[in-house]
């Protein structure tokens, strides 16, 4: 995904001379082509994320479309107040890019597990939160955020994720992607959990609908209402803490849709996410997902057997 991101950013920077990239001394073997192509619109600010976010705000106020790039918690949690106050309160054109969403840097430990940042960022006014599932989605959200005049966050995975969408995408703000339809259960996936979800269904020969959410905020409420009306059982899946994350967003919007009579009743919604815990064992991304309970086994079968409400 990070390769898709940087290639698309270079393509955007060729068309838009306001695109500026700041990095926090990270991005080896990723950002060099941008730096070489646009030396006047690139800066390594060093290992100083609060400064990076503030500088981004200053550059954006002077007309640049500024991307700040680092790993997981560093361009997000480390400088959260700069993001809230300098960038979002002033509604400035800054894009926060984090590589290594979720447990992508599994064995590196909790410092590198980005498992709370979506929840923290999505509650800040003016901020748009994106979590692409594959290189095509990463490319499309990069184009989207460049065109959008305001603060955005992109949670990238790592490198080498397979293509899921076979064709190039063009995304509207909040768009939900229908990946497959069928069966009585819908799985709503955000970020890199899409590949896992599709593999799980295939391996177990299960017919179910799958929707990908490249946006955690905002979410297309009309389409979500249709999904909520079409299924009695829904599973949300994300590589993030359960509280405040994507599943929380779905629950909140679903409740609002019910309150405002956009839907008549709520389906059963099962959230698959991390259950308020840190994990301090070494392991691959897949291993950590499994011990953290980010797995459709046995949830998918349990919910299938539950009487619908």
């Amino acid at each position: 995904m990070r390769t898709a991101f940087i290639n698309q950013l270079i393509a955007e920077a060729e068309k838009n001379d306001k695109v500026f990239l700041l990095v926090g001394d990270l991005g080896f073997s990723v950002v060099e082509p941008f730096a070489e192509a646009f030396p006047d619109r690139f800066l390594n600010v060093g290992i100083a994320e609060q400064n990076m976010a503030g500088i981004a705000a200053g550059l954006a106020k002077e007309g640049y479309c500024v991307f700040i790039y680092s790993i997981g918690n560093f361009p997000t949690l480390r400088c959260m107040e700069q993001i809230r106050y300098d960038i979002c309160y002033h509604n400035l054109n800054v894009k926060v890019i984090a590589v290594g969403g979720g447990y992508a840097y599994g064995a590196l430990g909790a410092s590198h597990h980005a498992t709370e940042e979506v929840g923290m960022l999505r509650i800040i006014p003016n901020m748009i939160v994106c979590a692409p599932a594959d290189p095509q989605e990463a490319k499309a959200v990069t184009t989207f955020v460049t065109a959008h005049n305001g603060p955005c966050y992109i949670r990238l995975g790592k490198a080498g994720e397979p293509q899921i969408h076979t064709e190039a995408l063009s995304l509207k703000e909040g768009e939900i992607l229908t990946v497959k339809e069928g069966g009585g259960v819908a799985v709503l996936s955000t970020g890199a959990m899409l590949k896992y979800t599709l593999d799980f269904l295939q391996v177990n020969n299960i017919d179910a609908s799958v929707y990908s959410f490249p946006f955690v905020k905002p979410i297309d409420q009309d389409k979500l209402a249709i999904i909520l009306k079409s299924y009695k059982k829904i599973i949300t899946i994300e590589e993030h803490q359960a509280q405040g994350g994507f599943g929380s967003a779905i629950l909140e919007i679903s409740n609002d849709l019910l309150e405002y009579n956009k839907i008549e009743k709520l389906p059963l919604i099962k959230r698959i996410a991390i259950k308020d815990k840190f994990y301090s064992v070494a392991g691959s991304q897949e291993y950590l997902r499994e011990i953290a309970g980010i797995t459709l086994m046995p949830s998918f079968f349990t919910i299938t057997q539950t009487d619908a409400v």
Binding site: Q50, N51, I55, A57, G58, K61, E62, G63, D86
Partner: peptide, 14 residues
């Protein structure tokens, strides 16, 4: 502690 980093951004833009 917020304004000086933003001012570095201004000065860099100039």
């Amino acid at each position: 502690g917020h304004a000086l980093p933003v001012c570095v951004g201004f000065a860099l833009a100039a």
